[in-house]
């Protein structure tokens, strides 16, 4: 509320937390990793609750961030709350490290927390992602932070929060199956292709965020901790390591994932999720890995093998 008549730049000392002692690099005038320590504690408390009730959405007092809502503010707040000076951060969007928003978020943390960043999945301790799970299996010492636009898996079936809350509380999920039933009745199979609803730990139905269903099986009993942040919708939820994550399906119409008969045009992978690239205006197409790191690793390995053989 200060009114500075001389229009000076606000001069605020950094708070406690990691910034204490001034040993850390960060943005002048801001706390380590942007958020103040009180907010970080609030978010960490929410995370603990989320881990204790796998798949259950916990409301939290989401802050306005310097990036717009819908652009990963939930994930950014979680990352800001858990990241320490020794962490190595990887940020991907659509599987790639070099997409504009991934670049922007990575540089935000470099600027405000001065942490090391990487594009290598294996080297990262914290991976913030939008819409993909890395192809390379994650380990126990890694944390995967998802950016979530709509945390409520029931939203397009029942828009009202009050009603959704009751459905979750009573595990009264019949209406979710009505939607699946309609899909199968109309198209012969389940039409949901991304953000495929899952049951976590046999209890809560959860949105896995808009990852393609190709990635859904990777969540099942993943060794890494999975944290989900929805900034605009003000919800946090989690899947602890080695927790059951099962996609909703019918006994006789099982869940299935996308497959390509083509391989990646760059690395030749057939088991990765592929992006389609339009190469000309007469229907030319190429397929390349959406996970830029997995693609690069595979190419590097191929090059090594080749030189080793010769």
């Amino acid at each position: 509320m200060s009114r500075t008549p001389g229009l000076t730049v606000p001069n605020r000392s950094t708070e406690g937390g990691y910034a204490r002692g001034g040993a850390l690099k960060g943005l002048p005038g801001y706390n380590f990793a942007f958020l103040d320590e009180v907010t970080k504690r609030m978010i960490r408390r929410t995370l603990l609750k989320a881990v204790a009730i796998p798949g259950h959405q916990i409301p939290f007092a989401s802050r306005e961030m310097p990036l717009p809502y819908g652009w990963g503010t939930g994930g950014i707040q979680i990352t800001a709350s858990i990241i320490g000076p020794d962490d190595v951060l990887k940020v991907i969007d659509q599987g790639a490290d070099d997409t504009t928003n991934a670049v922007s978020i990575r540089s935000f943390f470099r600027k405000t927390a001065g942490v090391a960043t990487t594009t290598r999945t294996g080297e990262a301790t914290v991976i913030q992602t939008r819409h993909r799970i890395p192809e390379q299996p994650l380990r126990e010492d890694q944390i995967l932070v998802y950016q979530v636009p709509i945390p409520e898996p029931l939203r397009f079936i029942e828009p009202r929060e009050e009603e959704c809350g009751k459905v979750h509380a009573w595990a009264d999920y019949g209406i979710m199956y009505v939607k699946l039933y309609e899909d199968v009745a109309r198209t012969g199979r389940i039409a949901t292709t991304f953000d495929y609803p899952v049951v976590v730990n046999g209890r809560y139905v959860m949105s896995p965020s808009p990852i393609p269903k190709f990635d859904t099986p990777k969540m099942h009993r993943m060794p890494a901790l999975q944290l989900f942040g929805a900034g605009r919708e003000k919800r946090i939820y989690a899947v602890p390591p080695y927790t059951d994550v099962k996609p909703l399906d019918f006994e006789d119409v099982p869940f299935e994932i996308e497959r390509w008969s083509r391989c990646c045009a760059l690395c030749g992978a057939t088991e990765h999720y592929l992006d389609e690239i339009v190469t000309d205006d007469v229907g030319g197409r190429r397929f390349v890995c959406s996970d830029s790191d997995a693609c690069a690793q595979r190419r590097a390995k191929a090059a090594r093998d080749l030189s080793g053989n010769s």
Binding site: D93, Q94, T99, E276
Partner: peptide, 23 residues
């Protein structure tokens, strides 16, 4: 701040989800 962010987030790449729908 919420509505403008979310409406405009549609500008962000959605290649992966679009590909899933395409398939």
């Amino acid at each position: 701040v919420e509505s403008s962010g979310f409406v405009q987030h549609l500008k962000l790449p959605h290649y992966v989800d679009f590909q899933a729908e395409l398939v």
